[in-house]
Design a protein around this nucleic acid. Structure first.
Lengths: 329, 329
DNA sequence: GCTGGTCATGTAATCCATTACATTATTCGC
DNA sequence: GCGAATAATGTAATGGATTACATGACCAGC
């Protein structure tokens, strides 16, 4: 309610001096500072940040574009973003795009209308219009794919997928199915590449019948796994490209009275918290979700503040986490 | 970059007319509107919302205070909030409090400094200082407990817990343990009430040895369940006050070679998406998480806009979802 | 004691969109 | 065809904080 003018009046000073006392105390006498502080208390002053931001043409907030906040992986990345934003004095706008271009475009208005200083994009970008957008305001990708331009953060999806499949091959598997994400999804594309690389390296012929495309949900994993179970020659291992679909697959296998991993090994990707506690616990690839969000946020804020124009692709380390669902056959 | 002045110049009109053409088109000639639109295109104008908001002393954004966005239940509530905010033209600030009073207080500055118009609180409030806060700015609780004042949204936690325990009793259980949340947590308190009510009604003596307090995480559920399994006289059923701890408990039971539900029934609370896909699938209480968030957001925005001063406690319906983990013994 | 410099503070412009009030143009009634 | 009413547009104040520039106080040096 009360403005800087009220403080100035209460302190018998000008608004300029009050502003200086609050924002650049070293430019003001010790005595003045004390008078201002007392006046601030007296009139219960809170600066109107809309006014400050208008003047400085900065909003000290960042927009997070997330395909779905209900997805635990993205929620973790978002948590990492929030922790850095908090530390550096920024607020976080949550832009849940629900995979809609329309919503995404709408949310970008927040930056164009000055309500946000930059964007962290969690959807992997195909790269087609990224250049154009990068020009108009700071944007950092937190969950990039191989085609995502800098500045961005990602893991080596292809390499991680390859490791996982090599792990299964090392355990003696030859018929290794995969549940991919949507065919055009960049993460799915990268991981598929790793899957095939590992097969090739082991001299295993790629079999399209052992590939199904899900939509990252447990339900789609369940459905895909059911189809594999119905094959005349069942795969002995199943590489799911995320943990949710793997959990759905475990459920399907268990429902068919198969034992995981003895009858079929099942592995996931992401290492969401549920992976460690599923029954059986899930072998998966740990992505440093929070660190990815945090790193992306650091890069974004550095850019916003002109501290550094980091223009590299940060590839953070992943880790193969072997648990019960892939124990050796 | 370009401001309303640039548009005015390009169109040969005053800024007032441009503003009217854009915000209250009916006050302006068809021809003028067209000229303005053309000029807007020509100079690539985007209104500076900081300026608009300063003038109107409104920010068209709401702050969501969430104890932890990585928790799927809260993520779902948040998704519900976001969908309504979006529909009504508001943005959502994500305030992850990590259960810290300090962080919460800091985030409340967003409202006091005019960057947000109101708050949706997901932590259940004990009610002690809610009155005071309610006076200074609009605040709505989305996940209330029995003590939470209006305006708020909640389910009947005690009633739901009672139903769940009655369900277990009906299945023949008499030794029913519970994994509570932290002792002082309002949801845990309410649900504990329901647990005891059901026991009382069935003439089962409450046994403190059958109560453990977790912190809502799967790990704590695992630990609590392990302790129950070590009891000389093992409980035959286990009511966990959220799904995560129930999933941890299932894991612990399975690891001890117990079969769920045959050797021990285990039930949860919340019906997060993983409940339907755990192995065995989890009997739980479905909370309308998205609807709770959505309702709270509607109430908040109505208050902000002065449309209605809904000052009631909305108790949304829950549902007992019986799945495999509690099949009759 | 005067000049020049430093420091603290004040005055007023600024950021940009909105809107009360003023002005001009148009239309209607008779 | 003229005054009144209405519609369209313009002028300038407004919101609140920041900051360039101006002013005044004070001190050092000579």
């Amino acid at each position: 309610m009360s403005s800087i003018i009220d403080v100035a009046n209460a302190a018998g000073l000008s608004t300029a001096t009050v502003s200086r006392a609050l924002r650049t105390p070293e430019k003001v006498t010790e005595a003045t500072r004390a008078r201002v502080m007392a006046a601030v208390e007296a009139v219960d002053y809170r600066p109107n940040l809309l006014a400050r931001n208008l003047r400085s043409d900065r909003s000290f907030s960042v927009l997070v574009l997330v395909p779905g906040i209900a997805n635990p992986f993205f929620a973790n990345v978002t948590a990492g973003i929030e922790s850095i934003a908090w530390r550096r004095g920024y607020s976080v706008f949550l832009g849940d795009t629900r995979d809609s271009r329309d919503r995404e475009a709408h949310y970008e208005q927040l930056v164009e209308t000055r309500l946000a200083d930059g964007v962290i994009q969690l959807s992997p970008d195909y790269g087609f219009n990224a250049r154009q957008r990068a020009a108009s305001y700071p944007i950092v990708h937190a969950c990039g794919c191989e085609l995502t331009q800098a500045p961005s953060v990602r893991i080596d999806n292809a390499g991680a997928a390859r490791e996982m499949v090599e792990h299964l091959i090392a355990a003696g598997h030859r018929r290794i199915a995969t549940i991919s994400g949507p065919p055009a999804n960049p993460h799915a594309v990268d991981r598929m590449k790793g899957y095939r690389t590992a097969l090739d390296a082991a001299g295993i012929v790629f079999d399209p019948a052992l590939v199904r495309f899900g939509d990252w949900t447990m339900g789609s994993g369940h459905a895909a796994a059911s189809e594999f179970l119905a094959l005349p020659q069942r795969p002995t291992a199943l590489f799911s490209m995320n943990d949710e679909m793997a959990i759905g697959a475990i459920q399907a296998a268990t429902a068919s009275a198969l034992r995981v991993p003895h009858d079929m090994a099942i592995t996931g990707f992401d290492d969401i918290s549920f992976a460690a506690h599923s029954t059986p616990s899930l072998t998966t690839i740990a992505q440093p979700a929070e660190a990815m969000g945090a790193k992306a946020c650091e890069i974004l804020i550095d850019r916003i503040e002109g501290k550094s124009a980091d223009d590299t692709v940060h590839v953070l380390p992943h880790a193969l986490i072997v648990r019960q669902s892939s124990a050796a056959i």
